[in-house]
Design a protein around this nucleic acid. Sequence first.
DNA 1: TTCCTGTTTGGCAATATAGCAAAATAATGG
DNA 2: CCATTATTTTGCTATATTGCCAAACAGGAA
Lengths: 113, 113
Amino acid sequence: MDPTTRTYYEAKSRIFKALAHPTRLFIVDELARRERCVLDLTEMIGADMSTVSKHLSILKGAGIIDDEKRGTQVFYTLKIPCVLNFFTCVADVQESVIEDSRSALGQMKGDAK
Amino acid sequence: MDPTTRTYYEAKSRIFKALAHPTRLFIVDELARRERCVLDLTEMIGADMSTVSKHLSILKGAGIIDDEKRGTQVFYTLKIPCVLNFFTCVADVQESVIEDSRSALGQMKGDAK
DNA sequence: TTCCTGTTTGGCAATATAGCAAAATAATGG
DNA sequence: CCATTATTTTGCTATATTGCCAAACAGGAA
């Protein structure tokens, strides 16, 4: 892979990395419903607020969410809703994994003669 | 987050994790074109074959690609082509990041009076 | 100013991931 | 059987990510 190609895929992988955490996927789903402040999300998630704040800054750094300070609170919103389309395909992938394990089980039964 | 919800998002994040690496994104793109054996991919990527093999097993474990042994070689194929749809949206996210940095630059220029 | 609430940042230990090299495994052809 | 080719697994070190705590920071109210 030449350096240009490598840079190309590194940039794309940064966005996948940002989404590659259960808490951050939850945040994306929740922000798809409505804007939320850090305290709201912290209570829903049940982790330390500093942890949630760090997750939010990762999503923001990737360009997936936006923040807006109003008074003492910071409200986050989903900036790029198309990431939700990922989830449909992810469900397809999960389906295929389930089918695989079913057919693997079938194989095992067949093997035990 | 209750345990069931956590499990739900952990399962989804596994698929994002599998895609969250430049080499693995390259592999997905390449397998979208045609099937490839490990040696092919290793030469294109320019890493150790054991490294490429591990990336392939991660993608396979996530259910994204399939393998088929023919003789002494193992050919890999893209199993769930919809992951390619991700890439369009990823491009949108990248666009928005570029716009952000442009407007940040504008801010700076405006600030320096 | 000081206090209070909401949020971010820094430090640090635990865990996970990446990649190379060497050893192990698999299929094929003498 | 042995040798060869293609691939995977193991062992290891280096690097990155995670999450808590404590400290710092930013408004707003008294």
